[in-house]
């Protein structure tokens, strides 16, 4: 197996575990809200569940992403993984997670007869872009986590939680409308891709200095 395909295998393994956790938490979360709010119709609940899943997934991606920085990247290096690949696995795991979540959502909405995929296409697109941006931001902040350890960790979690809240807003219907009217969609798409790339370049460069501590 080539070096990079090993990293892919490792990231894949991480991703499906994280997806399962996100799924589990979203189900609990949305059941809770459904029980709390009698006025919520079934249709609204089904619609909201999709958003909850996206939101929870992004939240977990950010948390797991920073955990990866502190733990999984050095762990891979300690097994003799090439540092560049180990650094890239951080975003790879998130991208795989994104892929699984999207598949679940597409399947979910396809199965629900009240909804058409087209209605939710924008939702998916923005969700996807949001996840890319969060992934890139996580990669960037993970440099701080690796350098400064647990002090940076708390700070980065807060920053990412705020950002994921921001992106979750964009993924909701409100955000959809806003983006549509303001014609920011193209800019949003390019910005997300740019954040992903810049974040990973920063991480790749920093990987040369990572010391695997006892």
């Amino acid at each position: 197996m080539s070096g990079f395909s090993r990293t892919m295998k490792y990231s894949f393994h991480q991703a499906w575990q994280r997806t399962l956790v996100s799924l589990g938490v979203s189900v609990v979360y949305s059941l809770y809200f459904m029980l709390m709010d009698d006025t919520l119709s079934l249709k609204e609940f089904i619609q909201d569940f999709g958003t909850y899943l996206l939101f929870v997934s992004v939240l977990f991606m950010t948390i797991y992403g920073l955990v990866s920085a502190a733990v999984n990247v050095p762990e891979q290096i300690s097994f003799g993984c090439v540092r560049l690949h180990a650094a890239l696995s951080l975003s790879l795991s998130n991208i795989f997670t994104m892929g699984f979540v999207m598949l679940i959502l597409v399947g979910y909405y396809a199965v629900m007869p009240q909804f058409s995929i087209n209605d939710n296409l924008m939702l998916f697109l923005h969700g996807f872009e949001g996840m890319l941006a969060v992934t890139g931001l996580t990669a960037f902040l993970s440099v701080l986590v690796m350098k400064f350890g647990r002090y940076a960790y708390i700070g980065c979690i807060i920053v990412l939680a705020l950002c994921s809240g921001f992106f979750a807003g964009f993924m909701s219907k409100m955000g959809n409308d806003f983006l549509a009217t303001a014609n920011l969609e193209f800019i949003f798409a390019v910005a997300s891709a740019a954040i992903l790339i810049i974040g990973n370049i920063a991480l790749a460069v920093y990987s040369k200095y990572i010391e695997v501590k006892a």
Binding site: V67, A70, V71, N72, E75, Q76, S78, F79, G80
Partner: peptide
Amino acid sequence: FSRELNALTTLGPNTQKIKEYFKIASIYY
């Protein structure tokens, strides 16, 4: 390089089962 594992870290490999840790080893060695 098989180095000392530290059980005190509460995140990451140390919440893994030994089986899972071996799975990672099987990917990289």
